[in-house]
Design a protein around this nucleic acid. Structure first.
Length: 464
RNA sequence: GUGGGCAUAGCUCAGUUGGUCAGAGCGCUUGACUGUGGAUCAAGAGGUCGCGGGUUCAAAUCCCGUUGUCCACCCCA
C-alpha cells in the first residue's frame, strides 16, 4: 500500500483510543454544563440541501462548502460512457446537497420545520461540521462544534445566559486565561449609518473586526482597499478607538447615535445585557464590551460574542451571536434566536499544549489473568462477575505465556488493576488483586467485586 | 486562493564534499524463560529513500516539475 493512498483526506483525522477518550472527556464536561442550564440535545443530518445552506454564510463562506455531486442525469451518462462530456454553467446543475458548514444554519432549518416545539426552545448540539479550507493549526476541514442556542426569545436574558454558559464551560474545563468580547451589530449599524457608510455595512464590519489584530492603520488601509470613502472611514475610526468603561462608552455613543435607525435600540440592549451578566454571577474580568467586535457571518442581528485566549494565539475558542432573521428566511415566520458555538478542536489543542487534559488510561479497569486450561473457566466466570458489578473487565483473548506477559499487557494498555487467579488462588478460593509492584492484596473470592471497586477508588485518589 | 519550510520502515529520526547509505531506536511477529510490572536473550517481517523527469560512470544526496504535509496570510471554531 503506497503512502499516496494510505492517508486520510486533508484536514480530516483519525483518533487513537487515547485521543478519542480525551475528546469524549472534554465533550462530557461541556455537555454537563449545557444540561446544567437546561439545554436539550438534538441532532441533524450530515447533509443538508444545498439550498438550505446557500446565502447564509456571506460571500466567502459559500465557497467553503463541501458539495456533493448529484447522482443521475447527465453525469450518469458521462460515467456510463453514453456521452463524452458534460457542460455545466452553475454548480446548482450538478449539486443537490452539501455538508453543513456550521450548526446554526441546520438548527434554523430544524426550527422552521418543527414549529410546535415549546418556546423558548433551548437546545445543544455536538456534531461534526465541514469546511473546505486549507488546513492549519487549530483549523481542520472536519471538526466538531458544540453549539448552544435559545430560539423564541428576544430577551437579552437569553444572550446573557448563552454567554454565561460558554464561559462556564471554559471554566469547567480549567481555563483561566480568557476573555469574552461582546459587541453589538445594531450599535455598529448605527455607527456606520452615522459615519455615512450604511450601504457598505458588511465590508465595514469585516474590516473593523480586525482592529485588534491589524491595528488602526491596518483597518484604515483595508477600508480604503474596499473603497470606503476616506471621510467615512475617518469618522468611524475616531469613534471606534475611543476607550473607557462600558457604561461611559455607551453614554457617549447614545449621544452620537441618537438619530440613527438602530443605534439607540442597540445601546439599550447592550445595557440590559451587561446588567444581566453582572447578576448572573460571572467573574467580572471574564467578559467585556468591545465595540469593535463585528464577526464575519451575515446573519447576526444583535449582540455578538467571541472568546479568546491570549496564549497560544490560536484564534477564538467560542463565537456566536443573535440571529433574529435567519429562521424566518426558512419558514417565513420570524423567530428570534441567539446562541454560541464552542470550538472543540481549538479547546483540545490549547488543553494539549498546556497539559490540561487528564492522563488517559484504558477503558478496562481490570485484567483477569488466564494461566492455563484449568484456570480458564474460573477466570471467565470472575470476569463476568466483575462486569455485572459494573467494573470494566477484560481477559487475554489469545494465548499468553506466563504472568509476566500478562502484566506487560496490562501495563502497556494502562489497565490499573490485575486480578490474578492462578492455581494457588484457586486452591485457597482467593484472588490476588495487583495494582503495581509491591501493591497487591489477597482477597476472598466471594468479595472480589467489592474489593476491586474499593481498590480502584483508592488508586484514583492516589495516582501512581 | 497567495507565500515559505519539510518529505528515508508503522512511529521518531541518522545518512559526511554525489561513490557498501538501505540504517538505528521504538513498535510489531515468532521462539526461549515454572506466577509479579512496559524485562532479557534469539530470530523475523517491514522501505522502488513521496512521485515523475533531468544532470552524472554513479543520485536518498544536485536540478526541474508534481503531490502530500506543516507554517504564515486571508477567513474562521
Amino acid at each position: 500500500m503506497s503512502r499516496r493512498t494510505l492517508r486520510t483526506p486533508p484536514g480530516m483525522r483519525d483518533f487513537l483510543p487515547s485521543e478519542k477518550r480525551q475528546r469524549e472527556w472534554v465533550i462530557g464536561r461541556i455537555r454537563a454544563v449545557f444540561e446544567r442550564f437546561g439545554y436539550e440535545p438534538i441532532e441533524t443530518p450530515a447533509l443538508e440541501l444545498l439550498e438550505t445552506l446557500k446565502g447564509k454564510l456571506g460571500e466567502e463562506g459559500e465557497q467553503l462548502l463541501f458539495k456533493v455531486l448529484r447522482r443521475g442525469t447527465a453525469l450518469e451518462d458521462l460515467r456510463l460512457g453514453r456521452v463524452s462530456q458534460v457542460t455545466v454553467t452553475d454548480y446548482d446543475e450538478v449539486v443537490d446537497y452539501a455538508l453543513p458548514y456550521d450548526l446554526t444554519v441546520p438548527f434554523s432549518r430544524f426550527l422552521a420545520m418543527h414549529p410546535n416545539l415549546p418556546r423558548p426552545f433551548k437546545r445543544y448540539q455536538i456534531q461534526r461540521v465541514w469546511r473546505a479550507e486549507k488546513p492549519q493549526r487549530g483549523r481542520y476541514r472536519e471538526f466538531y462544534q458544540c453549539d448552544v442556542d435559545v430560539a423564541g426569545s428576544e430577551s437579552m436574558l437569553a444572550d446573557a445566559e448563552i454567554i454565561t454558559v460558554a464561559i462556564e464551560a471554559l471554566l469547567e474545563l480549567g481555563f483561566t486565561d480568557f476573555r469574552t468580547r461582546i459587541g453589538h451589530r445594531k450599535i455598529l449599524d448605527g455607527l456606520v449609518e452615522w459615519a455615512g457608510g450604511a450601504e457598505r455595512f458588511t465590508d465595514i464590519c469585516v474590516s473593523i473586526d480586525k482592529l485588534e489584530k491589524i491595528g488602526l492603520s491596518g483597518v484604515r488601509e483595508e477600508l480604503a482597499r474596499r473603497e470606503v470613502p476616506q471621510e467615512v472611514a475617518a469618522r468611524l475610526l475616531g469613534q471606534l478607538t475611543e476607550t473607557g468603561e462600558a457604561s461611559a462608552q455607551l453614554t457617549r455613543l447614545e449621544r452620537t447615535l441618537a438619530d440613527t435607525r438602530n443605534g439607540p435600540a442597540g445601546i439599550a440592549e447592550m445595557r440590559e445585557l451587561l446588567d444581566a451578566l453582572a447578576a448572573m454571577g460571572l467573574p467580572q474580568d471574564r467578559y467585556l464590551f468591545d465595540l469593535n467586535l463585528a464577526r464575519g457571518l451575515d446573519y447576526y442581528t444583535g449582540p455578538v460574542f467571541e472568546t479568546f485566549v491570549e496564549t497560544p494565539p490560536i484564534g477564538s475558542l467560542t463565537g456566536g451571536g443573535r440571529y433574529d432573521d435567519l429562521i424566518g428566511r426558512f419558514s417565513g415566520q420570524p423567530l428570534a434566536a441567539t446562541g454560541t458555538s464552542i470550538g472543540l478542536e481549538r479547546i483540545l489543542d490549547v488543553m494539549q499544549e498546556f497539559d490540561m487534559l487528564p492522563t488517559s488510561r484504558a477503558v478496562s479497569e481490570v485484567l483477569v489473568t488466564i494461566f492455563d486450561d484449568a484456570s480458564r473457566i474460573p477466570a471467565l466466570r470472575l470476569a463476568a462477575e466483575l462486569r455485572r458489578a459494573g467494573i470494566c473487565t477484560e481477559f487475554p483473548l489469545r494465548r499468553t505465556k506466563g504472568l509476566r506477559q500478562q502484566i506487560a499487557y496490562a501495563s502497556s494498555k494502562q489497565i490499573p488493576l490485575l486480578a490474578i487467579l492462578g492455581p494457588d488462588e484457586l486452591r485457597e478460593d482467593r484472588v490476588t488483586l495487583r495494582a503495581g509492584p509491591g501493591n497487591q492484596r489477597s482477597v476472598a473470592r466471594a468479595d472480589v467485586a467489592a474489593e476491586a471497586r474499593r481498590f480502584l477508588q483508592e488508586l484514583v485518589r492516589t495516582p501512581a
